[in-house]
Simulated scan of single mutants.
Amino acid sequence: MSYHAKLIKGGKIVIPAELRRELGLKDGDQLVIERMGGSLTIKTYAQMVREVQAEIKRLVGPYEGSLVDELIADRRAEATTEDRRP
């Protein structure tokens, strides 16, 4: 579905009320604008986080366990090694 928005003074974009309601956008929400060639894409921060998480999951692949727990264990092991150095 297409919507029309208006660019007003100061470079502000007015997003139609119907679209804001459908997407659950509220006053003060932070949005991310991406330039893709000659087009703009507007996303919420929540959308960006989901996309980044999906990309990381794709890159890491199936993984059993917790990457965070693994990282913490690695850091603790490094700290122990450093504490033992003369």
Score class of each variant (00 low, 15 high):
Met1Cys: 09
Met1Ser: 15
Ser2Gly: 12
Ala5Leu: 04
Lys6His: 14
Lys9Asp: 12
Lys9Trp: 10
Lys12Gln: 15
Ile13Pro: 01
Val14Ser: 06
Ile15Ser: 02
Pro16His: 07
Glu18His: 14
Leu19Thr: 07
Leu19Ile: 08
Arg20Trp: 04
Arg21Thr: 13
Leu23Ile: 00
Leu25Pro: 00
Leu25Arg: 00
Asp27Pro: 06
Asp27Met: 10
Leu31Gln: 05
Leu31Glu: 06
Val32Ile: 15
Ile33Ala: 14
Ile33Asp: 02
Ile33Cys: 09
Glu34Arg: 08
Arg35Ser: 13
Arg35Phe: 07
Met36Thr: 08
Met36Arg: 14
Gly37Glu: 02
Ser39Ile: 04
Ser39Pro: 01
Ile42Gln: 01
Gln47Asp: 14
Gln47Ile: 03
Gln47Gly: 04
Met48Trp: 05
Val52Pro: 02
Val52Phe: 07
Val52Trp: 06
Val52Lys: 13
Val52Tyr: 12
Gln53Arg: 14
Glu55Met: 10
Leu59Phe: 04
Leu59Asn: 02
Gly61Thr: 06
Pro62Asp: 14
Glu64Trp: 05
Leu71Asn: 10
Leu71Gln: 11
Ala73Val: 03
Asp74Pro: 00
Asp74Phe: 13
Arg76Pro: 03
Arg76Leu: 07
Ala79Met: 07
Thr80Gln: 12
Thr80Glu: 07
Thr81Gln: 09
Thr81His: 06
Arg84Val: 07
Arg84Ala: 15
